[in-house]
Computed example of a mutant assay.
Amino acid sequence: MPDLVRRLVAEAWTFRRQVELDAELRFVRLTERLAGLGAPEPLVDLARRAAEDERRHAGMCERLAREYGQEALPPVPVAVEEVAPPALPLREQVLYEVVAACCITETESTAVLTTLLVPDGPPRVRAVLRDILRDEVAHSRLGWAWLSHEHERGAVGFLSRHVPAMLEGTAAPNLFAPGRPEEESPALLKHGVLPHARKRETFVRALRDVVFPGLERFGVDTAPARTWVERRSAAGA
């Protein structure tokens, strides 16, 4: 593997480690808040297990990062930021965060991991991808289940105006910009990293095929979110 590609792979697994550690803290907090809101016990259990899953994922990502040559790792986070607008009532804040973290981020992660499971990848990488994929599917279901629960209690249409901000927080800053030549290397794919253009394509396809139809099913207007995708795509082009 060229040194530049190896470095990109090591950086990608290092970044994933941090994402998983952040997600662990987020699910710990969501477990407490869902319980406080009287969520059904199976959903609280799903959130609790999700926190445990993310800690395990972080360990797997760290091992792969080191195998690909990463030496220094960022510190383990001790807190995770609030993503919901503070002006929202607590119940709406929790729904906002669950939709952003599970219905969008975990669904997107599922799409990425599915795309990465190529048959010629190293066995150790495929094993990690399969393990994380299995759990991310469950984490995504937590989000859709809580959205369904809240939809039954009343309107969740307020989310419509917030979905673009959720997408802004999910998408990498340079996702819609042209990638550097090394970021488009086909060699990345078998080592668990999507080439840049493929990453953007997977992100948009998951939104259009899964996330947006899912939100619309529960009465969330996705027109603002679809406009966000069109504008970002046009700006990148």
Rank of each mutant, 00 (worst) to 15 (best):
F27W: 12
W146K: 04
A79T: 12
P186C: 03
A235F: 07
R198C: 02
S140G: 15
E92K: 12
V193F: 09
P195R: 03
F212P: 10
E67L: 14
I104V: 15
E20C: 11
V28G: 02
A84P: 00
D45F: 04
A35E: 13
A223P: 01
E71I: 14
V163W: 08
D45H: 06
V94M: 04
L95G: 09
G36W: 04
K199D: 02
L64A: 11
A39I: 04
R56Y: 10
T114S: 13
E136H: 07
L189R: 15
R141A: 14
M166H: 05
P224N: 09
L189I: 04
S185I: 05
A12W: 12
V193I: 12
P178W: 07
A10K: 02
G179T: 04
A23E: 00
V118W: 00
E108C: 06
R7Y: 01
A177V: 02
G121A: 15
R49C: 02
R56A: 14
G169H: 05
P75G: 06
V19Y: 00
H57W: 11
R200Y: 11
S233L: 15
W146H: 12
P173H: 11
D53W: 09
A237V: 01
V28C: 03
R33V: 01
R198A: 15
A177N: 04
A234E: 13
D221A: 13
L46E: 11
R29P: 01
V112L: 06
G59I: 07
T202V: 15
